[in-house]
Computed example of a mutant assay.
Amino acid sequence: MIETYYIGAYWGARKEDAEECARRLATVVQLLQPVDPLFASWFKSAKSLKESLKRPLELDLPVLIKYVQSKVMRDDRRQPMEALGFSIWLWNGRQAGNDAWLRMGCGGYSEWVGNNCILEAPDEGPGSERVLTTSFQVQALRALATAWDPDWGVANSRAHREMIEPKYPEVWPGWVTYLSRRLGRVPPLPAPVRIEPVEDQGTLVILTPERFTAANPEHVALADRVRELLERAGLLQRKPPPAK
């Protein structure tokens, strides 16, 4: 079975209006573009992929604000629920034969909602050899962290997440983990782990220079050790939203 991966950024209640979310959306799209040709363009979600191709994402701010506003969460009567924020899905139009998805929940300030930005890049196909590299994972997570200023984020294997979630239900660091400076200072970590700053916002913790996999016992043991050290430093107190 192919081991699949995802990249996510997560933060708690933060009231932001359509303009603030639109600016962050434009930023993440612009930061992802140089990471890989997969992110050269994006299309708005529609009832079908064919219809989605007719709806390219425009980064003109007034147009983008109007689009974000149209994605406000609504109740069963279609009435806006502003406290739950905005829900946005984008598709890359199958660039170079590969699908990528970017979904965002932003602007939510209810205690019952978590905000997030999730990037799904291809695990198979001609683009996967680039996606499944530490360089790609680091650059993509850096883009999400810079744009959204989350509490934490992770680029990880779903198999690894499922492996550790029963033991550590609150937070599960992975191949690359982002921790906001708001959470505290990252302690010294064992080799081959390295850390990189993300401007003045936070830190990336990069477990392995090669592809991380849950099938490798050494990778899993290293991830457990790093998680223990981060938890001991008080950095893993945020509770993530339910896994998708």
Score class of each variant (00 low, 15 high):
A145S: 06
T146W: 04
T146P: 04
A147Q: 02
W148A: 02
P150G: 13
P150Y: 04
D151P: 00
D151L: 15
D151W: 13
W152R: 09
G153M: 10
V154K: 06
V154G: 10
A155P: 08
R158Y: 12
A159Q: 13
A159P: 01
A159V: 13
R161G: 13
R161A: 12
R161S: 12
E162A: 12
E162D: 15
M163C: 11
M163H: 13
I164P: 02
P166L: 09
K167L: 14
Y168C: 07
Y168S: 06
P169Y: 06
W172Q: 09
W172S: 12
P173E: 00
G174S: 01
G174V: 00
W175K: 02
W175D: 03
V176F: 03
T177Y: 02
Y178N: 07
L179Y: 03
L179H: 02
S180H: 05
S180N: 08
R181C: 07
G184N: 03
V186R: 01
P188L: 15
P188R: 10
P188W: 05
L189Y: 07
P192W: 07
V193G: 02
I195Q: 03
I195R: 03
E196T: 01
P197T: 08
P197M: 06
P197G: 05
V198E: 08
E199Q: 10
Q201A: 15
G202D: 10
T203L: 04
L204I: 07
L204A: 03
V205N: 06
I206Y: 07
I206P: 00
L207S: 05
L207D: 03
E210P: 02
R211T: 13
A214M: 07
A214K: 12
A214D: 14
A214C: 14
A215N: 08
A215M: 09
A215E: 08
N216K: 07
N216C: 03
N216P: 00
N216I: 03
P217Q: 01
P217T: 00
P217C: 08
H219Y: 10
V220S: 02
V220F: 09
L222Y: 09
L222I: 05
L222K: 07
A223W: 05
A223F: 06
A223P: 11
A223K: 06
R225F: 01
R225S: 12
V226Y: 00
L230H: 01
L230K: 02
R232I: 10
